[in-house]
Design a binder for these strands. Structure first.
Length: 606
RNA sequence: CGGGACGUAGCUCAGCUUGGUAGAGCGCGCGCUUUGGGAGCGUGAGGUCGCAGGUUCAAAUCCUGUCGUCCCGACCA
């Protein structure tokens, strides 16, 4: 049965919704696919649900094809499994927690590693049962601080998550590679361009991981790519460390007056003004910015430390958090925040705006930062601060900076930390040239989890020698609802959406325009015959709507092929419109069925 | 969580400055006309002005709080 516009639960909107900014959000709401129901929550209307189901089915087919078996967990879960892995705490404000009538703690699952692990533990206890790949397509909940852009970032969303359970790393590698290949096929079938980039494992733990990003200006992730094909999320790029420099003949450091230069920009100006370089101009990357930060453990213990980075770069707090605990020798995972005035006030030797690793004391250069210095403040440097590199930096004296301070010769540090984000133009790790930064939407993420979850939850099997072995796991996600948004974002024009045929709510939109019964009867006939040929039809059989209204709706809704039955009928033609190719042609009625069928099939087989 | 903007009919918005019984366009119902690019005329239905306090004879309008939305930042598969 064709979908009929006369009875379809649909109201297209003439204006963009006031709360929408990005194209996918505007169009999905205007064309009647989704409707906001809650902060960060959307209702799927009939058209939207059809698209969502098609996306799910493609994912499902490809997961089944690599041997995945579908299961389905509750979204409402007790806290215990998540306590066992530490994520009840780790997720912080990121999850929805609630209590039942007796006061027991529950959560709405943000992802299901724990439950899959326990499920396998319940059933399996031998290496002979492995490998096994399980997956589900399920609603996930995250208490996002800021839902945005329609379906792109919401608090309730649909995700395919799969998990591999294998006896060893070789099995994991195979599972990972199979998923990787399945993901490439899935996005190709969806008609969504993605690039695989190296990623940080983040809260999931584990080792190797890659993200599948859809390149788009509306995306929230930034990745870099090199001319040689290296691609990585900015979070995951490791710095290319410059060669150490021979400083045998380097000039001695010198303190100079640099009034009113508490920012790098001001310092560069003042330096060029009062202490010009022999050749050229001083640049921000020749200054050393010493940033005072505080590591906070359990929300209470505050440890002030200083990180030095080249002046043209900003400190990346998230990167620091990945390594600061170890660097400071504390257990636990401290968060990092800018030092407060209070924090700084406890270290009176620090002169805000003029902080540097050293100071001159009676003409003698003296180390001011570092656990061995007399301030005792832990001091770390970015990998770009190599031995022999020369810097302009604070002299720990008001209105003064020191010029020509040489790393290693003039100051030392407690450790080297990745402290800044990679920038457009930085050298690529593969040596093929400068990195270029692009934006992307995260469509999927694959992780080699290793044994973290299996260990925490006691998932072990007996190996062939009868010994207990911890199972090795991988986890693999695809954002289904986000994929719908990305598809809308990637496939539209001024008139409306243009769905790839594999996910379109219907294959052909038949528009009957005019008032003669013959027109509507012919349109019905086409609909019946096309459906019989396995082609899904959306039929505009509204008698009262005007032609212009029907055309506008058809373009907005975005079924990619339109068959218009109207004024041409008198001379035996109908009009075939291809939204992908942006073409329209009159064809003889007798040829229409074959034409349309061929066109649909040609797009399906792409 | 910080900064900014905003919340009035299904949708897009006006009215608020200067307090005085709720408005427009689109959409929706009915009638007639019209029928290949969101048509016309007529006629109707539809809103506790986000919510809660306060000021006032009187609050959509002024004040306070709160909830929500959008943007930027922080954070986040």
């Amino acid at each position: 049965m064709p979908l009929r516009m006369s009875t379809l639960f649909l109201r297209t909107l003439r204006d963009d919704p006031a709360d929408a900014e990005v194209a996918s959000h505007k169009l999905l709401v205007r064309a009647g696919y989704i409707r906001r129901a809650a902060p960060g929550g959307y209702t799927w209307l009939p058209l939207g649900l059809r698209v969502k189901n098609k996306v799910e089915n493609i994912v499902r087919e490809e997961m089944n094809a690599i041997g995945g078996q579908e299961v389905h967990f509750p979204a409402l879960l007790p806290k215990e499994p998540y306590e066992a892995t530490g994520r009840w705490e780790d997720y912080g404000d990121g999850i929805f927690r609630l209590q039942d009538r007796s006061g027991a703690d529950f959560l709405l699952a943000p992802t299901h590693e724990e439950l899959f692990t326990l499920l396998v533990k319940d059933h399996y206890s031998s290496y002979k049962d492995l490998p096994v790949y399980l997956y589900q397509i399920q609603t996930k909940y995250r208490d996002e601080a800021r839902p945005r852009a329609g379906l792109l970032r919401v608090r309730e969303f649909i995700m395919k998550d799969s998990y591999s359970f294998t006896i060893d790393d070789a099995g994991l590698d195979e599972a990972y590679e199979k998923h990787r290949e399945a993901y490439v096929r899935i996005f190709a079938r969806l008609g969504l361009e993605v690039v695989a980039v190296e990623a940080m494992a983040g809260a999931m733990g584990g080792s190797r991981s890659e993200e599948f990003l859809h390149p788009s200006a509306a995306g929230e992730d930034t990745f870099v790519e090199s001319p040689g094909g290296y691609r990585a999320n900015v979070e995951a790029v490791s710095t290319v460390v410059p060669e150490a420099i021979d400083y045998t003949n380097a000039a001695a450091p010198e303190v100079k007056d640099t009034p009113e230069s508490t920012t790098i920009a001001a310092l560069v100006d003042v330096a060029n003004d009062l202490a010009p370089k022999q050749t050229g101009q001083w640049q921000a990357h020749e200054t050393l910015k010493c940033v005072v930060l505080t590591a906070v453990l359990d929300g209470e213990q505050r440890q002030v430390f200083v990180v030095a980075v080249p002046g043209d770069r900003d400190v990346d707090v998230k990167r620091l958090e990945a390594s600061i605990g170890e660097a400071l020798g504390v257990t636990g995972e401290p968060s990092v925040e800018p030092a407060t005035e209070n924090d700084i006030a406890k270290h009176t030797q620090l002169v805000p705006g003029y902080i540097g690793p050293t100071a001159f004391n009676d003409g003698q250069l003296q180390q001011m930062l570092g656990t061995d210095s007399h301030t005792g403040i832990p001091f770390f440097v970015d990998p770009r601060i190599v031995p022999g590199s020369t810097w302009i930096t604070g002299a720990n004296e008001d209105q003064k900076h020191v010029f020509g301070l040489v790393a290693e010769r003039d100051f030392s540090w407690d450790g080297v930390l990745e402290a800044t984000a990679v920038q457009d133009g930085d050298p690529a790790p593969d040596g093929s040239g400068p990195l270029a930064a692009r934006r992307g939407m995260e469509m999927g993420h694959i992780f080699q989890l290793g044994r973290k979850y299996a260990e925490a939850l006691g998932l072990k099997v007996l190996d062939e020698n009868g010994k207990q072995v911890v199972v090795t796991m991988g986890s693999y996600g695809i954002g289904i609802s986000r994929a719908v948004a990305a598809l809308a974002e990637a496939h539209h024009d001024e008139q409306g959406l243009i769905w790839p045929i594999n996910v379109a709510p219907a294959h052909v939109h038949i528009v009957a325009t005019g008032k003669d019964d013959a027109i509507f009867e012919t349109a019905e006939e086409f609909a019946t015959k096309l459906e019989a040929a396995g082609i899904e039809v959306l039929l505009d059989d509204r008698r009262k709507a005007h032609a212009g209204e029907k055309f506008s709706d058809a373009e907005l809704i975005g079924v990619p092929i339109h068959l218009i039955v109207g004024r041409g009928l008198a001379k035996g033609t109908v009009e075939l419109k291809d939204r992908f190719a942006a073409t329209r042609e009159d064809i003889a009625i007798d040829d229409a069925l074959e034409h349309v069928t061929n066109l649909v099939h040609s797009y399906q087989n792409r």
